[in-house]
Design a protein around this nucleic acid. Structure first.
Lengths: 211, 211
DNA sequence: ATTATTTACGTACTTTGTACGCAAAGTATA
DNA sequence: TATACTTTGCGTACAAAGTACGTAAATAAT
């Protein structure tokens, strides 16, 4: 049976990153409460569905996105976080390239759209707090887990990863020290291939290690 | 109204620590499922009750313990983790001195008892996994948060804290370096008091900083 | 006083992290 | 072909954090 659990929800904080700009994916709600307002894509969990699966399914239904690397971040359970009844919500997040996904509003979403995170307005429920939590979680985990996996191709030269870190963290990192760090911490592994057709000296390709 | 949420539970992993021995507090269940078996003290959340409050209340009802420093650790949400129906559980943990609490089985607990963590038997549900998760969370956070707060008196000399770290982490830590570390990381603050009536030189008293 | 014990400060060394130099391997230009 | 130019990737020097350990100060016991 595919019944819904009425008191448990999932919310997804999907960050889009391109040209140094950080965006967050919101949907325009097609149901009460907060009908017609922009909010994080989320919803309820089926009785026979794991949390991770629910997160993926909801995202697919609401926005058309699939195949992301999602991470569980935290639980939000304040009694007053949802107006109609008691709902606790598990927050997932991911970091992607907006241009790699075609958005398609479905289910209870009238529209889907990327919004700049900087200067974002007040969202329904505790969604602003969720965005803050997810973002600081990402900035924390970037050196430990492959959270950039959706932003990088399967194989990439280290400079591409370097650029990504710099723009995402808004700070300049010495290229040579960056290499040493990601290699010594075993975040990446070198392949026996090099870039070709580049402008100058070919670079070794690397791959993120999922530990 | 004090209705219960049927799909959300709390579980508490309460570790007792004395003489270098690590124990875990279990209750003998007084209801189905898993009637009569030893398990983590946990239960359901009221509709109008925050997660943190529920954790504290349940612990009080089941074991008589109150006034602990509890931390939220993780959520467990596998579809098959509970036999009767779908229940996701939020795990809390704490570290205490067993002798400071008088245990009193109540509510749906027939008995309450400390068990050695080492060599613990198979528990119902995913409670063994919870214990592992909580323990590694504690070992991780011990340098960052005041997780030892229940094990130390309000004011204590640094050596007492040093002993605690050593026995809890099963490793010897150089006393002089230990002091430097906890002081420089601002885990503790020095008071203008000293121990008196000790065997030798009086020591300054310190207090854990809650940041 | 002397000795024993615990506290608390300090110093030398090792590891990790940061700043920066420069040669190697390509492309573009003469 | 030679020369300049760009990007890669190794290496070295200095700084900060972490570890090993020496020893004097403060008290109790003798």
């Amino acid at each position: 049976m595919n019944e819904i659990l009425p008191n448990i929800s999932i919310d997804n904080a999907i960050f889009g990153f391109a040209n140094g700009e950080l965006k967050i994916l919101l949907i325009k709600r097609d149901k009460q409460p907060e009908f017609d307002r922009w909010s994080l894509p989320g919803g309820y969990v089926y009785c026979n569905e794991n949390m991770d699966d629910a997160s993926r399914r909801l995202l697919q239904e609401l926005t058309g996105m699939s195949n992301l690397f999602l991470s569980r971040v935290d639980v939000f359970g304040d009694t007053d976080r949802y107006p109609d009844r008691r709902v606790i919500s598990v927050l997932y997040c991911a970091l992607v390239k907006p241009e790699q996904f075609e958005l398609l509003a479905g289910a209870h979403a009238k529209k889907v759209k990327w919004f700049k995170v900087k200067g974002i307005k007040k969202l329904p429920f505790d969604h602003n707090e969720m965005i803050d939590t997810a973002l600081s979680w990402l900035r924390d985990e970037i050196w430990r887990k492959p959270v950039l996996i959706n932003l990088l191709p399967e194989k990439f030269p280290l400079n591409q990863m370097h650029d990504l870190f710099q723009t995402f963290l808004h700070e300049t990192i010495d290229n040579r020290n960056f290499r040493k760090k990601v290699i010594s911490q075993e975040l990446v592994e070198r392949l026996n291939e090099k870039t070709k057709g580049g402008k100058q000296r070919p670079a070794y390709l690397y791959r993120l290690k999922r530990k």
